[in-house]
């Protein structure tokens, strides 16, 4: 079973040379820590920066340079700033190569719910609806089950949707799965996790083709 850093580490393998990448809040943010040094990648933050760098050293924080999580950040050589409409032109116009975001639920047809729990959590969708509606390449990073132990990979989402039929790949603490027309196809299992464990933790239709390799991370 992976921890959050393990999930981020596995997703980092999906980040390719020359990619512009948008990282959501939570586990996705950790992905930046595990991207190989020998490839060139630029991180976009939808509040208006491309070429995002690490957090600043203490004393060098700038209220005018933050990421979409409102955290103080730095920029790398070659970075640029832009307004919100241009930022979403990059996203809606499919100029961003890879979008990684968290989810509360994903359904077997690729629907995603991650912005609202009616009557409980109503913080808003931020840029998530724009991202999932337009991105060609979306990876969801999340735990396989919720705190109560119930599956987050469902036949049908129970929470209000963020987008329909948009998720392509899911990396959880237990498995790597691809969304196919017939359901979740199990591609890899986490170290120490059996196919049976994954079957028990997955409510949606699971497609298991022959041998399922263990992730190499």
């Amino acid at each position: 079973m992976l921890d959050k850093n393990g999930i981020a580490k596995r997703i980092a393998q999906e980040v390719k040379d020359g990619y512009y990448v948008n990282l959501g809040i939570g586990i996705p943010t950790l992905v930046a820590n595990f991207v190989r040094d020998d490839i060139e990648v630029e991180f976009q933050s939808e509040n208006g920066v491309l070429g995002m760098g690490p957090f600043p050293f203490e004393g060098e924080e700038d209220a005018d340079i933050i990421n979409a999580g409102k955290q103080t950040i730095t920029t790398l050589p070659g970075a640029s700033f832009f307004d919100s409409a241009m930022s979403f032109s990059m996203i809606r116009g499919q100029h961003v190569d890879l979008t990684i975001l968290g989810a509360m639920e994903v359904s077997e047809n690729g629907d995603i719910a991650n912005w609202k729990i009616p009557g409980k959590m109503v913080k808003g969708m931020g840029g998530a609806m724009d991202l999932v509606a337009s991105a060609e390449n979306i990876i969801v990073a999340m735990m396989h089950t919720n705190r109560a132990g119930a599956s987050k990979l469902l036949k049908k989402c129970s929470l209000p949707l963020t987008g329909v039929g948009c998720v392509k790949k899911i990396v959880t603490n237990m498995a790597v799965l691809e969304v196919t027309p017939k359901g979740f196809e199990l591609l890899e299992r986490a170290p120490g996790v059996s196919v049976d464990d994954i079957i028990k933790a997955t409510e949606g239709d699971l497609i298991i083709k022959a041998e399922v390799p263990e992730m190499s991370i």
Partner: peptide, 21 residues
């Protein structure tokens, strides 16, 4: 918001920016 005193319209961030633009 939860008590109903405040009316709230939540919209996607890119849509918000584009409705301004």
């Amino acid at each position: 918001m939860l008590s109903g005193e405040l009316d709230v319209e939540l919209i996607p961030q890119g849509t918000l920016a584009e409705r301004c633009r």
